[in-house]
Simulated scan of single mutants.
Amino acid sequence: MSLLELRHLSVTLRGRPVLQAVSLDVGAGEFVGLIGPNGAGKTTLMRGALGLIEEVDGHSSLAALSPDARARAAAWMPQAREIAWPVTVETLVSLGRLPHGRKAGPADRAAVDAAIARMGLEPLRHRTATRLSGGEQARTLIARALAQETPLLMADEPTAGLDPSHQIATMEVFAGLARDGHGVLMSLHDLGLAARHCTRVVVVAGGGVMADGPPAAVLTDDLLAQAFHISAFHAETPDGSVFQPLRVIR
């Protein structure tokens, strides 16, 4: 089942073409890692897919929906993590339930409790969100997106700024959502996390999709040299894939 369909999506920002004729599908059960060099257009691709950019040509199944329907179809976690109001963690996470109606019921409370538990935030439930550390705030905002309980979750670098333990835990949460039948589209820069946890990797470079497929098939020596100008070590171990960038190729 396709949860996101992009057909020939092109985006222009401030008169500069960023993406040209991108076609992409994300289905139920997929954990898609969106990778690429800085400035390649990963964030732009997701924002364009959500209808958050005006200068877009082509088709996005999400952008074609009404705002209310879109909020029930996809949860969005942007890269910016500013928490503006001094509300509790529980209150902030509960904002993820707004697309389902303003009168909270048992299903809403259960969704909030599950999201808080999944992100390990129970000890912080009654803390003021603006007083949390940066990593704790990031986990709270992920929990808010989880509480939205949408078929598709889109996240822009959600592991940035987290310590290694919480990076791995967050990737495991998203991988678990995919196993449960959700679709996940996440941009990230850590190729090791992408290789280990994603079911599929999409490389954005040069204004379009350079490669798309299982991590082992995509993260080849030739592609790494072409897209990132690096070499890397890759091995399959009893504990899963190990992928470590090694050096810049001049």
Rank of each mutant, 00 (worst) to 15 (best):
T130N: 08
A104H: 13
G192L: 12
E149I: 06
R97Q: 13
L162D: 00
L146G: 05
I168Q: 06
A107V: 15
L124K: 08
A147L: 01
A104C: 09
P106E: 15
L132S: 12
H182D: 10
T128Y: 06
G101A: 05
C198S: 09
P123L: 03
I168H: 10
G105N: 13
Q137F: 01
G134A: 13
G192D: 04
L132A: 14
A104T: 12
E149P: 07
E157G: 10
A111P: 06
R139E: 04
M154W: 02
G135S: 08
F174Y: 14
P158W: 01
P151G: 13
Q148N: 10
A110I: 01
V203H: 01
V203S: 05
I168N: 07
G134M: 13
H182W: 10
A195Y: 02
A175R: 13
R196T: 02
T199F: 09
L121T: 03
L162A: 07
S133R: 07
I116K: 03
R125G: 02
R125F: 08
V173M: 01
A104Y: 14
A194R: 11
V184E: 02
A155W: 07
F174M: 12
A145T: 10
R144L: 00
A110R: 12
S187T: 12
R125H: 07
G134N: 11
L162K: 07
P106S: 15
R127M: 10
A114Q: 10
L124I: 05
D163K: 09
M119Y: 08
F174H: 02
L95V: 11
R131Q: 15
T170M: 14
R200E: 05
L152H: 03
P164C: 08
K103W: 15
E122N: 10
G192H: 04
A115K: 04
L193D: 00
V112N: 09
H166F: 11
T170W: 12
I168Y: 06
L153S: 14
T170L: 15
L124F: 11
L124C: 04
M154S: 05
H166S: 04
V201G: 07
V173R: 00
A143G: 06
A129C: 10
H182K: 15
H100P: 09
L98V: 14
A194P: 11
L146Y: 06
G192E: 03
S187D: 05
L95E: 13
P123M: 00
C198L: 08
S165G: 14
E157Q: 13
A195C: 00
I168L: 13
H100W: 13
G176A: 04
A115L: 10
L98C: 12
P164V: 10
T170P: 10
R102C: 09
H100E: 06
T140Q: 05
H197K: 04
S133L: 09
R97Y: 13
T140I: 11
M171Y: 03
P106Q: 15
D180A: 15
D180V: 00
G101Q: 02
A129S: 11
P106M: 14
C198N: 08
R200H: 12
R97K: 11
G96Q: 06
G134I: 14
V112Q: 04
P158V: 01
G101T: 01
T150I: 08
D163N: 06
G96C: 08
V184K: 01
A169K: 02
R139W: 04
A160V: 14
A147T: 02
A145Y: 05
P99H: 03
E172C: 05
S94W: 03
R102F: 02
E122K: 07
